[in-house]
Amino acid sequence: MHATKGTPDATRFLELLRLSVSLVLIIFAQITITGFVGFFVVFLPFLSSSYSPGSLLTGMKFLIAGFAFALPWLGYWWMMYSLSGNGRIRGFFLLLLTSYLALIFICMQIDPVYNPEAMIPGSARESTFLVCMAMSAVILFPFYSLGVYIFVLRPVKRPRKRYRFLLLCLLFAVAGLVLLPFLWHSAPIVYPGLLSFPE
């Protein structure tokens, strides 16, 4: 039965409602995943707390944190892909843009400032590492999400999805490690509060 004139189309309303719920959920997912990874990085217990852009331990911590960010997003996009039923995530680029803007907003809230009265005063290197993680997420996240959707989820041919995902992770691990020294030196420009820390 057709919708009468002046009456909202129920199908269109449901589509808008579904899209609105998807946008709210992806913003919530971004806040949750980013917050979890930030907490996880600070409290990684088994790696040294001394940071340097050329250090092996710093690189390992960087990659572990990156994987902790990448894996939940694989799960999120895979869930959306499975729910679509037709091999396409409905409104993928709008969802990606919304999650990316949420990530940028979160990273804009970071304000590393030296506080000598804190129970455990932070160090310049630790704070620099944390903002480098945030900057690398802002740079790599949209490309990673596109890679997951186009390269990992959509193709049905071999190799299997898990191998394509591992290959994608390897590619982004290399990209992240190449970026790290550049981000390290540009971090005080993006976050001037780092200059308030003692040498």
Rank of each mutant, 00 (worst) to 15 (best):
P198D: 09
A102D: 09
A68I: 04
R90I: 12
V21C: 11
R18M: 14
T32S: 13
L74Y: 05
G147R: 03
V24M: 14
C132F: 04
G59M: 04
R158H: 02
G176N: 02
S48F: 12
I33M: 08
I33W: 03
F182Y: 11
A29N: 06
K61I: 08
P188I: 04
G54H: 11
F13S: 07
P188C: 12
F151Y: 10
L16W: 15
L47V: 15
Y149E: 04
V41I: 14
Y51A: 04
P116L: 11
Y76S: 03
F141G: 00
C107K: 07
V138N: 10
D9I: 07
A137M: 14
L83E: 06
R158I: 00
G35W: 14
G87Y: 10
Q30R: 13
G66V: 01
I110G: 06
G59Y: 02
L47T: 15
D9M: 09
A173C: 03
E199L: 12
R90C: 08
I139Y: 07
L63W: 05
W73Q: 09
L101C: 03
F40H: 08
I31K: 13
S50V: 15
T32Q: 11
P112L: 05
L146C: 08
L166H: 00
L47K: 10
L96K: 05
I31T: 15
A175M: 09
T128I: 10
M80K: 03
A10V: 13
S84V: 03
A102G: 07
P53Y: 13
L180K: 00
G35K: 13
P181S: 10
V190W: 11
M108T: 11
P181D: 09
V156A: 10
W78N: 04
P45V: 11
G193N: 02
S50E: 14
W77G: 00
V190Q: 04
G54K: 12
L194A: 08
L97Y: 15
Y191T: 02
G66L: 01
Q30P: 07
F13L: 15
V174H: 04
F182Q: 03
K5I: 15
C132V: 07
G38W: 04
P112Y: 00
A118L: 11
P72Q: 15
T58P: 03
V174T: 10
L44N: 07
I27W: 07
I110N: 07
M135E: 02
M135G: 02
